[in-house]
Amino acid sequence: MATLEIKDLHVSVVSEDAPKEILKGVDLTIKAGETHAIMGPNGSGKSTLSYAIAGHPKYTITSGTVTLDGEDVLEMSVDERARAGLFLAMQYPVEVPGVSMSNFLRTAATAVRGEAPNLRHWVKEVKGAMADLDIDPAFAERSVNEGFSGGEKKRHEILQLGLLQPKIAILDETDSGLDVDALRVVSEGVNRYKASGEVGVMLITHYTRILKYIQPDFVHVFANGRIVESGGRELADVLESEGYVKYTGKTEAAAIS
C-alpha cells in the first residue's frame, strides 16, 4: 500500500529579485486507492505543489518533508522520483523535437520498469493503450508533443500514466482546455488506471466538471499556498455553487456558469 505523505511543505520560487514563498505549509497524505481532488483558484499554488513534488529545479523546498512509503522524496533526483513510483501529468507537456513518441515511451518504460520491455508485447501494449485513448497510431512516429493540440498532449500524458503504472499519480489540470469528448476519453483513461491496481491519485483542478467523470474520495480547497478546507465529494458541490469567494475574498467561479 503506497502512501505519499506531505508534511508542512514550504516552497519558494526564485523570481527576478528575491525568492517568493508560494507554498506555506501544505499537509496532505494520499494512500493507494484514494483519489484526492485539490481545488483552488488561479495562483493559489496548486501547480507549484505538483512541480515541487516532481522535483522541478525552479522551485526550492525551504522546509517540510515529502515521503513515499517512508522514503525521502526530496532527496531524490527527478528521474529517481519517477522510478520510485511518482508520476506528474503536466498541465503544459513539453515538446521534444526529433525524439519520436515511440522511442520516448520505450525509453521511459525501460527506465521505470528496470528492464527493456519485450518488443513484441510492448508494441501490442502501446497500440492497445493508444486505441483506448482514441490516439491515431501515426502519433507514435511524431516528435514528443511537437505540434500536438492541447487535447492531444493531454491524451498522451494519460497514455504515459497507463504505460508507466506509477503508485501515485498527480494530474495537474489535466482537464483544462479539453472539449467534452476529450475530457470523457481522458477521464476514462484515468479511471482505467485507477481500476488496474492500488494507486493513489492527486487530481488538481480549477473546475468541478472533471469530478463528474472521476469520483474523488476527498476534496481539498487550496488557497494562498495551503489547504484551507477538506471534505468529501459534497465539498465540490459547495464550490460549484459558491465558488472560491469564501477563501479568497474575490469572486472566481469553480464551475463554468
Binding site: 516532481a54 522535483g55 522541478h56 529545479p57 533526483s77 527527478v78 528521474d79 522520483r81 519517477a82 522510478r83 508520476f87 506528474l88 503536466m90 507537456p93 513539453v94 521534444v96 525524439v99 522511442n103 520516448f104 525509453t107 521511459a108 527506465a111 521505470v112 514528443v144 504515459q160 508507466l164
Partner: peptide, 17 residues
C-alpha cells in the same frame, strides 16, 4: 525535466535531446 519526470536518467535524457 520532462524526460526525467518519466524516469529517464539525466545523461540519457541529454543524449535524447
Amino acid at each position: 525535466f520532462y524526460l526525467q519526470a518519466r524516469g529517464i536518467p539525466e545523461d540519457q535524457a541529454r543524449r535524447l535531446v
